[in-house]
Structure formats: C-alpha cells, structure tokens
Design a protein around this nucleic acid. Structure first.
Lengths: 125, 125
DNA sequence: ATCATATGAAACCTTTAGGTGTTATGTAAA
DNA sequence: TTTACATAACACCTAAAGGTTTCATATGAT
C-alpha cells in the first residue's frame, strides 16, 4: 500500500524552526544542510529532521552536489494553505481589503478617478 | 510571569480535527460542546481539549448559557496566517494573479481600458 | 594515501499530543 | 426534591515530536 505521506503542509509549518528554515531558504535561494544548521542553535541532526518533514510536505526540494545536499524552497504546496484560508476570509475581511491586499503585497498601483469610477492602474509585467 | 500562551494559530490548525471543528463552527455559527462532539468519532473529552487549544489561539470564543458552553468561530487570528503566507506568494504567484484573486474571491469587478490604462472598477460597498 | 568535512543512520531521552475512562459539580426539568 | 444532563477535572495511556550523542560512510582536498 502507498506509504501515506506522514506530514502535510499544515503540520510542516506548525513548528517555528521549520518556518524559519523556509524563510531562510526564501532569502538565500539554496543552501546545504550545514549552512542551514549554522543559523540555528540546535544540532545539525535536528535540522536534518526538520528538513525531512519539510520535504515530506514538498515545501523544500534538494539536489546533491558532491558531498553536499543542497536544499531550496518549493513554495507550491502553500497554495493548499491559501485555499484553506480563503474560505475563512469572508468571515473577517471587508471589501476594502481588496485594495489593502493590492497595496500591501504588490507594486504600488496607480489610483485614478474617472467619471465616477474608482479605478486602480495595474502595471503590466 | 505571564502564563505564555502555549498554542499559536499555526499549531492550532495543524490538526485535522481542529480544522474540522473550525469549519463546523463557520457553518453552524454557534454550538455547545456536546453538539460539536456529536459530529466526530472521538470522545467529548477529546473535543473539549481541542476546543481549549483553539481557544488558546483565540480562534474560537465561548459563552455560557445555563449548563451549556456555546462556542463560536473567531477568525481574526487567521490574519496572522494570511500575513505569513503573503510573504511567500511572490515566490509562486505571477502578477496576473492579482486579477485572479479579485475575480475569484470578490464580487465580479468591471474592467475598462482608458487611454492605455488597464483598469478595473471596484464596486463600493 | 591520508585527512578533513558533509551527511546518514541509529540509539536514546524527555515532553507533548491526542486519546481514553471515571468521578464530581452545577443546572434544568420532572 | 429527585433525576437527567452538560460540562469540568482528574488520572492515565501510547505514540509521536523534538531534541541529543555517537558512529559510519562518502567525497574533496593535501
């Protein structure tokens, strides 16, 4: 029978250390295990276990280069979290938060008012 | 010293049962403990513990009515999760997803093109 | 060939998570 | 005032989480 993945994305991000590892990999693009461990007060072995859990949830991937195992972020599974969250947004977000979302998370849009329409210019990329 | 909250929102949602409890409360608005427990194959005592963890994370609140303790969803702490997620969105979302987000999660906006500006009309509420 | 380094793997420990069952207490209803 | 019911409070259990240390193995550098 399928070896049923033991850790999902919800469990993977439950631990602060693992969230910190994700953040580190987001910033540094890719790092071998020892370099990751150097950022934390716990043992390399412990970090390896956290990396295994993150890998089970498919939040990180690795390639081997010589004697090093180099990890990088694989953010796609976070979409599951986003979907889960989106269900609850309607319980607390008001509609103005559309603007808030855009303003806070994207390049500053340009606002214009044209004939009673409240518009924002979305730059094309 | 402050009895330092033991469970945060990340840990609270790590457990499937607790996520199911949240979903149930989102649908049913409010329910006493026994009614909640009736939806699950585990004991009422176990559900009470899950509710305590959710309450520590401030994801549920309760009021007492006679001999019943009635719980309801308190979604605000999920904003912390949303903020955490938003950091990673840029690693997998392309910019078109701004539109995607608006279209999927909000009332259909109106699109207009004015003098080279690609605008969308955000209805005011 | 030797030595240092990066990782893997195993054994072990302590605390917490998630569950059980039993008993006690407060409130509603008969 | 009994009786039934909803919850609280314990004591307890097992397995998993998060950590440690030690030893082995593979690879790069001298």
């Amino acid at each position: 029978m399928e070896p049923t993945k033991k850790h999902d994305v919800f469990q993977a991000i439950a631990d602060k250390t693992r969230r910190d590892v994700l953040r580190l990999l987001a910033e540094k693009k890719e790092l071998p295990i020892s370099a990751i461990a150097a950022h934390f007060p716990i043992s390399r072995t412990a970090i390896t276990k956290h990396l295994n859990i993150l890998a089970e949830a498919n939040l990180v991937q690795s390639r081997k280069s010589g004697r090093e195992k180099i990890y990088h972020l694989h953010p796609e599974p976070l979409t599951e979290l986003k979907q889960w969250l989106s269900f609850y947004e309607r319980f607390w977000e008001n509609k103005l938060s559309i603007l808030k979302h855009v303003v806070e998370n994207e390049y500053p849009p340009t606002f214009v008012t044209i004939g009673g329409f409240f518009c924002l210019h979305l730059p094309r990329h």
